[in-house]
Design a protein around this nucleic acid. Sequence first.
DNA 1: TTGTAGGCGTTATCAT
DNA 2: ATGATAACGCCTACAA
Lengths: 328, 328
Amino acid sequence: MAITIYDVAREANVSMATVSRVLNGNPNVKPETRRKVKDVIERLNYKPNAVARGLASKKTKTVGVIIPDISDLYYSAVLRGLEDIAEMYQYQIIITNTDNDAKKEKNAFETLLSNQVDGIIFLGGTDDQKIIDNIQRSNTPVVVCGYSKETSINRVNANYRDAIARIVEGFIERGNKKIAYVQSGYHSVLETLLADKICEVLEEHNISKDNMFEFSANTYEEGIELFNKIHEIKADAVIAISDEVAGGILHGTLDMNVKVPEELEIISCSNTRIAYMMRPKLSTIAVPLYDIGAVGMRLLTKIMNNEEVDEKVTMLPLKINYAKTTRV
Amino acid sequence: MAITIYDVAREANVSMATVSRVLNGNPNVKPETRRKVKDVIERLNYKPNAVARGLASKKTKTVGVIIPDISDLYYSAVLRGLEDIAEMYQYQIIITNTDNDAKKEKNAFETLLSNQVDGIIFLGGTDDQKIIDNIQRSNTPVVVCGYSKETSINRVNANYRDAIARIVEGFIERGNKKIAYVQSGYHSVLETLLADKICEVLEEHNISKDNMFEFSANTYEEGIELFNKIHEIKADAVIAISDEVAGGILHGTLDMNVKVPEELEIISCSNTRIAYMMRPKLSTIAVPLYDIGAVGMRLLTKIMNNEEVDEKVTMLPLKINYAKTTRV
DNA sequence: TTGTAGGCGTTATCAT
DNA sequence: ATGATAACGCCTACAA
C-alpha cells in the first residue's frame, strides 16, 4: 500500500488538512509546522496521488494532444514546442494518433474528456463538422494548431495564403507559367484554399488558372514517381505541401536530368529538417513549427487559467526560405 | 456539472451499482435491465469519469513514456509502434521529453508514478544508476526500449553488436583499414560497447585497434563539419550512430569531391526515413524502429496484466541495408 | 493557525 | 439479480 496524506499527518502529529495545506503552498501554516510536515514528507518519501487530487479538485494538470501522426516530422516538431511549454507550466501531456481519420479524432476527443484533461490541443486542424460541434459544446478549453474553417475556435496558425501568394508572384515574375500544386492525399480545407489562392494570383496576372495543375502525394517515394507526371505536363514550377514529397520530386529530377532550379523551381510548405538535408537544399516556407506548438500551448494555459485572451485566432507571420531549388 | 453514474441510476430506476455493472460488462445483470440502463446512458450521453474510476479501481489504463526527444525521427518512429499497440489495448499514453538529461528522467519517472500510470516505458535506454534503482524499487511495471546495463530490467532492443561486427568484417574484407566511429554527444553505454566491439573485430583480424577513430556529432550540420576531420585522418570507412549525422558526412564528401563509396564507405545505425532520402542512399542497419515500440508495449501489457513473460530481454534481429554508400 | 467533515465519481464487498 | 455502503486519496469549506 502506497503511503498517503494520512500517514504523513499521523507522523507529523497534525491533521491531514494541514498536510494538504503545506502540499499546496497555502500560506496559513505556521512556519514551524510547515517544517515539521515537510520533514516527514521527505522522510517517508511521500508523493501525492495525482488521481485522487484530480478527483477532488477537478483539475488534473493534464492536457490532451490529438495529432495525425506523431512520426511525421512536421507534427513532432510542433509537439516539441507544445511539450516544452507544457513542462514549464507543469502540465502532463496525453497524446493520441489519428491518422487523419475523423472517427478516430472524435474518439480521441471523447476519451480525453473522460480522462478529465484540463485542455485539449488539436494538431493539424479540423474540418469535420461533428468534431467542430463537439469542440464548441465542450466546457474543456480547446486550441487548434492549424487551420479550421470555424472562426469561433481558438487557434494558432501561420499565414500560408500570403506566403503562397508571394511565391506565385515570384514565379510569375521569373516567367514561370505552369505551376504544379502537390497536396497531401487528405485534401484538407486549407489545401483547397491554397489551390484557390494560386488560381487567384494567376488570374490577377491575367494568366488562366488552367495553368495550375493539382496532384497529390504523401511520401518521398510517391514524390519521385510523381515527377514523371509533372515532367509530362511541362510544369516549370512546383509547390508541394510536404517537404518529403518535394524531396522526392527533387530527386526525380536528378533521374531525368532536369536541372533545378533552371528548368524547374521547387518549393515546399513544411519546413522540416528534411528541407535542408536535401542537395540542393529545398526552398521552403519557413513555417515556425516549434513556435506554433509553443504559442498554442501558451494560449491554452491562459484559457485554462481564465486569463484574458485577446484574439481567438493567432496568425504567425511566415517568411520564405529561398534556398537552392528556386531561382532567387 | 457533468452527468454521473447517479443520474443514470435515477433515470433508469436502478441502483448505481447496477449501472456500474453494466458499464463494466458484469454478466450478473438481467438482459432487460441492461438494455434499460444502456438506453439511459445513450440518452444522457453519459461518459464515465476515468479519474474517479482510476481512484476506485487503482487502474488508470494509462502508461507513461519517457523519451529523450520526440522530434527525433528515431524515437518518434518507435513511439508510433508503442502508440498503435497501446491503442489496441485501450491504454492512454502520457509522454515526457528528457533531452537525455538524467535529472529530467528521474523527475519524469516520479511524476508518472504520482499520476498512477499502470506502466512506464523508457525509450533510448538508461544508464543512470539512480534511475535503475528507482525502476527496480517501483511496483509499477517498466519496460526499456533500448539498451541498459542492468540485466534484471525488462527490455526490448536490437542486436547492434552482432550487426556492427558483421559490418566491420565487411569493411576489412574490402580492404578498409581506418574506421571512423561517430557517436552521439551523449556517450551512452551502448555506444561505448559498440566501440569496444569494433576494436575487438579489428584485433581478431590482426589489425590494431588504433585504426578506429572516435568522433561525436549530433546533427546534420555537425556531420558536414565533421567530415573534414574524417578526411584528415584518411579514414576509409565511417560508422555513424545517427542517420542525420551520416547524411551530413555524406554531403560533406560531395563538397570535397570524395567519392562515396569508392573512396569512403559510410553506414549508419538508425534506419530512419532520412536514410533513403539521401542521394546516394545511405547504407544502414535496418533497425526495426516501429517493431521495437510495438513489441515493447506488448510486453508491458503482458506484465501489467500479470501474464507470463518468458524472457526479461527481447533482442530483435537486425539486418543490414546495404544501399549506395557501401561497396557491397 | 489548525482540525473536522463532507464531497469528488467510481469500484467493490456484502447483504438481500 | 440488485441494492446499500464503504472505500479510494485528496481538497475545501466551515468551525474552532
